[in-house]
Structure formats: C-alpha cells, structure tokens
Design a protein around this nucleic acid. Structure first.
Length: 634
RNA sequence: GCCGGAGUAGCUCAGCUGGUAGAGCAACGCCCUUGUAAGGCGUGGGCCGUCGGUUCGAGUCCGACCUCCGGCUCCA
C-alpha cells in the first residue's frame, strides 16, 4: 500500500503496516523518537494499522509543544499514575484517566480516603517507574474477553466502561524489564515508552462523580501534568502563578474596588472606586439602550411565589429562590426579570402596531447558588444583568436579533474583549415545539448573525430550549476557565403562560414572541473578567482614578489642587496625592494602583509645562491644553 | 450540596512536639522638604473564623458549624 508523507512524497509499505513501521522505513532515529502519528490530521497510536492512501505526519519528542503530542505524553502519564496507586493502595478500584487541557487526571475509588500529602508518596512511586522505564503494548480483544478480564480483576468501573464503549475494545499493557505489568482498558494513543516523560507533577486532589453524575458515587480524582522538558513544567507553573496575580478576587480588594464579607456570601461590597467602573458600564448601557430603541423600566424585586409558579420557574428553580415569609404568603426575591416585564406588557391592550416593545432593566437579582460554586464576582448570589425583553411578531425576529448582534459587536470592541469571546449556538432538542422548517429558519438567523460578527462558535446540538434556539456568549478568565456572559434566547412559551397577547392586523389575538437578551451578561461577572483580562490596568476611560496630581512639596499643593479641579471639570476622575511622602514613593503607589496618568507638579511646572507620566513609565512635557488633547485620545 | 486544602494585625505571611502571639508592608506621630517604582526614627494595632470539648493551661489537640481556595455537580 502507499502512504502519503507531509512533503507529498509516497511511501510503499506492506499491507497492515503501522505508523511505527512507516517511521522505521524512513529511519531508525525517527522510529525511536516518534510519539504519535496523525492520519489526515487525526491523532492515532503509532501501533495502529494504516490504510492505503492515508496521509500521515509523524510527531516526535521534538514536537514538544504540539497539543496532540502533549496529550499522548499525558495520557501515558495517567497510566503511570494508575499503576503507582494500585501498588501503593491495594484494593483500590480504577475508573478513568484521560489527558486534559493542561495535564491529565485519573479517577480512583479508594477504600480509605486519601489526603493531599499522599500525593508526594505517589509521585515518588511514579518517579521510580520512570527510572525503571515503562513501555506500552497495544492489543485488541473482544468485548466479552475484556469484560471477563476486568470482572476477574474486580474492576467494576472498567466493566461498565467496556459495556458502554463504542467500537472495538483495546488494551494497553505497560511493562518493564522485570515484568510487573499493568494492563488498562484504553482507546489510546500512547507513547512507545516512558523515556520522553521528562517532567511529571501531581498537582491536586478533588472529588468527582462517576460519569459526571451526582447521583453516582463520588470518586477521588488525582490531577497532574507532564511535559517533554523540565523547563516546560517550570514555565507552566510560573504562568499559573502569574495568572493567579490577575485573579479579580485578589485585584478587587487590592485596588480597593470591591470587597467580600462572610456575612453575605456571594455578594460584593462596592467601593466608590469600584462604582466608577460599575457606573461606566451602566452609563454605556443606558446610553446605547436609548439609542437603540429600548425603554428602561423597573419592576419589583420581590414577588409572591404564585408568580414563579405560573411562569414555570418554581418547578425548575424553586430551590434556588430566596424566600421571604410575609403573613400568610410567601415571597421570592426575583432571580430574573422576565415575568415582571410580561406583566408590564399586559397592563395595556397591545396592537401589532406597538411592536416591537423593548423593555430593559438592570435590576438586582438573587439566586441561591450552592455554596461550593460561589466564586467572587464571577459566580455570585446577588448580581445584575443588563437584561432586556423584546416583544415582537414572528416577522420581526430576524431584524431584532440582527440588531442585538450589532450591539454585542459594539460592546466587545468598546471593552477590548473580543479576543476572549466565543459563542455557543444551542439548536433544536428532541422535544421541540414547531416544525423543522421553523427551526431551520430561526437557527439560520442566529447562525448568519454569528458569522456576520465573526465570533468563533460551536454548535451545541439538541441543547436549545424546546421553544427556541439560543446563543450563549462565553469569555475565559485568567486561568482559561470559560464563563457564560451574554445570552440571546427566543421564547415562545413564557409569554403564553403569562397571557401576553396583542391584536394583529387580522383583528385577532396573537401571542407575541419574546427575545430575552443580556449582552454583558451579569455586570459583576463582566467586571470580574475585565479585571482579569487587563490585570487590573483598565483602559483609561474605565479607570476609577484617571489622573493623579503629585505636588512635589507643601508649597505646590494649591497649584496642584487647582490643576486637579480643572481636570475634574473637564470630566476626568482626578485626585491629588498629599506631599506627605517622597515623590518616588507616591509614583510607586500610583503604579501599583494602576493609575493611568500621574502629573508631578513642582517648581519647574506651569500651565505651559506639565510633567506627565503615563502608566508604565513613559514621560512627556505638555502644556495644559495639549494635556487635554492627549487625555482625549486615551 | 459533594471531595481535598486553608482561615493568625488593614495586606502578605511566620509561630517545631500545648506554657500569656511575631516580621515586612500599610496606618498614625515626629524629623526630612521631596523630581518619576520604597528617606529616617518612633507609636499604636490581635474574640489566632465561630461555637463547644479535652487539659492546671489551647493559635497549637478533638468535634460541629461558617467562610474562602482548587475541583465535581449545578448555573433560568
């Protein structure tokens, strides 16, 4: 058979030859260093047979940064971990151990719980394995054989995995000179041997439900990471450390933007500085909403739970509702604005001529999230969404959605966060309402809009609500964890439950469509992500303190105050740092506080000549009027 | 909610096997009178997360709870 190489040359191999055979045919060195073969771009085990006409690329230990090459190394590392744990903890049951984004994990069912300090012991055991060396052999067996084998080994999780696995069953046997085999059910691919694993570290311990199902037993997950070079591990750990210093939960209190209190978990205490950011978002929201035809409304924070029963939220989210007893009735703090907006819509008889009606409200919302899931501003119990509900006819849906995408596009550019964002389009579920033609149409509208603004997106097939598709916008935090931000959802259900109607041109009552949308998502979460993205050094227009004037000595205090006042009048958030400390120290403080512009004012300065320093250290000498020009460009 | 880790001054952290709590930064006072990332000297500051237990004696040992961190589940 013929195999195609990356340079388009052909390689003649006997039928059934593997990637490793191909490597051997090219050269012994390549065969030794090969870790993985990509067949038409897809990662495969070196030992798996190739087919005639396959286009292959061999990855070696030199492709140390290739994600697929790293995944193989880490997958094999997970198996070393499993072997070590089995030796140290007889009777432990093993579950599953895949590579993940920055490393790998393996799930175990320990007879006795283990603790973080046990990781050291396990790591030492793996180091021993690495010293002895391990090699991996692949074998294919029948489903029945595999089940028998793992049943005999008393590995119930493996038996279940065999039962639910798709395709052929393969095993990997890991062995060394003196034997001591460990054979694991595994699809692969794996390394040839453990030599390329130059750095391996177990990082942490966590509970994880078997098959991700909270009704199933919780296993102990050991996380680790591994690299082709020691330096790469060091660089990774350093990168992690740097990412931690961008954590908004650290930056917020440090920059005195907001604080948290254990007396109100999941709710922020905003300082005046933090409010400068919060209000900048609010101002923008109000201005743009007005420009784009939204009407700002305000609906109650607290509603009789009868409303939530009627809207359908009680059944699904009742547990997450904060409740307040009042006489004989029970109230709930609103977790969302929709029912309120629908009641407002219902206060008048609506004509098709009134539509679309766009209600906007950034009210405080409360959701009783599980304690273990709270996370600073990004997962809070109290937050505000830049929420809006657009009541419209079916014909108006497309135009409304297009307008929302323009709005998102505008926001992401304004805040400089486009590069962090991606979207997910959730399409028709099995229990959908309406015809396939209708779904083709609505999904098509959303897809076209996504393509138009050029945001990367993936399709979550079947994950839409039964009444309509939805789009969720995501952004990554400093540690690369994705957070749901904005959302655009078409709702053909709630309006009906709450009795929303309008009179159509046909003189008959119709139920309007409602498009729910939040574009920032939660304002709190958005600020959290912004802080992490900018490492606290926010763009000038968002900075809580934009300019700080530093009088050199007491004698310059009055001039400094006058200058600051004039800048405040020009619309800039300005303050004066009293001359109680040296200039050097005050400059340093301003840098640490990430203040974008500082002006030193002493004997040499005047309206004609101001000593302006920008964040980072760049200095210039500007007149007052050219300073204003400069600030306007920031 | 579940698994693991942690909670000591405003912040960052030290405090070995139980014997009345300590540093740096910050704050405050005085001196210096400042020129682009830390001037000097001094002072004050602690329910050692909360509650309970063991002990002559608990920051330290035990238990429960609360909060935070890393995950899991969940996230309208």
């Amino acid at each position: 058979m013929k195999i195609l190489l990356p340079d388009n040359s052909e390689l003649e191999l006997p039928d059934g030859a593997s990637g490793l055979d191909a490597a051997r045919a090219i050269g012994p060195k390549l065969a030794e260093q090969a870790v993985l073969v990509k067949v038409d771009g897809e990662a495969r085990d070196l030992r798996a047979p190739l087919a005639d006409g396959d286009r292959i690329q061999l990855l070696t230990t030199r492709d140390k940064d290739d994600p697929d090459a790293l995944a193989v190394l880490r997958h094999s590392s997970a198996h070393l971990l499993a072997e070590a744990v089995r030796r140290l903890y007889p009777g432990v049951k093993i579950a599953i151990g895949p590579p993940i984004e920055n490393g790998f994990y393996y799930d175990f069912d320990f007879r006795e719980p283990i603790r973080e300090e046990d990781l050291e012991r396990i790591e030492a055991e793996i180091a021993k394995e690495l010293k002895e060396g391990r090699s991996w052999e692949r074998s294919e067996i029948s489903r029945e054989e595999a089940k028998e084998r793992f049943a005999a080994e008393d590995e119930p999780y493996k038996v279940e995995l065999v039962d639910t696995a798709e395709g052929d069953i393969s095993l990997y046997t890991q062995s060394h000179a003196e034997g001591d085999d460990f054979t694991d059910l595994c699809r692969g691919p794996h390394l040839q041997n453990s030599k390329p694993i130059k750095a391996l570290k177990l990082t942490h311990l966590a509970g994880a439900y078997w098959r991700g199902d909270s009704t199933k037993p919780q296993l102990t997950r050991i996380y680790g990471t591994a690299f082709y070079a020691k330096e790469d591990l060091d660089a990774y750990l350093e990168r992690l450390e740097r990412a931690r210093s961008r954590d908004h939960r650290r930056l917020g209190p440090q920059l005195d933007l907001f604080h948290m209190s254990e007396y109100s978990p999941g709710a922020a205490l905003w300082t005046a500085r933090g409010m400068a950011i919060y209000n900048a978002l609010e101002d923008l929201r109000r201005r743009e909403n007005a420009r784009r035809g939204y009407s700002e409304v305000k609906t109650p924070l607290m509603w009789d739970v009868e409303l939530w029963k009627r809207s359908g939220h009680w059944e699904k989210y009742g547990d997450n509702l904060f409740r307040i007893e009042h006489g004989d009735s029970l109230y709930g703090l609103k977790p969302m604005n929709c029912p309120g907006h629908m009641l407002l819509f219902n206060t008048q008889l609506r004509s098709y001529r009134d539509l679309p009606i766009r209600y906007a409200e950034a009210a405080v919302l409360h959701r009783d999230e599980p304690t273990g899931s709270l996370q600073g501003l990004t997962r809070a119990r109290q937050f505000s969404q830049d929420d809006a509900h657009v009541f419209c006819t079916e014909e108006q849906i497309q135009e409304e959605i297009d307008a929302m995408f323009d709005y998102v596009d505008f926001l992401y550019d304004t805040f400089g966060v486009r590069e962090l964002a991606h979207a997910e389009l959730a399409t028709r579920p099995d229990n959908k309402l309406g015809t396939d033609e209708q779904w083709d149409h609505t999904e098509g509208v959303l897809k076209a809009a996504l393509d138009r603004i050029g945001l990367p997106y993936r399709i979550a097939a079947g994950e839409g609500a039964f009444y309509g598709p939805k789009i969720d916008f995501f952004m990554d935090d400093a540690l690369g964890r994705p957070w749901q931000m904005g959302t655009i959802q078409l709702d053909g259900q709630q309006p009906e439950r709450l009795g929303c109607t309008y009179m159509g041109a046909d003189n008959r009552e119709h139920t309007p469509y409602v498009i729910h949308r939040a574009l920032f998502g939660s304002l709190e979460r958005f600020i959290g992500i912004l802080l992490e993205h900018y490492g606290g050094a926010l763009p000038f227009w968002l900075s809580p303190v934009q300019v700080r004037v530093l009088p050199v000595g007491e004698g310059h205090l009055d001039s400094a105050r006058t200058l600051a006042l004039r800048l405040s009048e020009a619309g800039y958030r300005t303050e004066v740092a009293e001359p109680s400390e040296t200039i050097g120290k005050r400059i340093r403080a301003a840098e640490l506080e990430k203040i974008p512009v500082t002006i030193v004012y002493g004997d040499k300065e005047s309206d004609e000549s101001l000593a302006v320093r920008e964040r980072g250290g760049e200095q210039s000498e500007l007149s007052f009027s050219s300073l204003l020009e400069r600030l306007a460009t920031l």
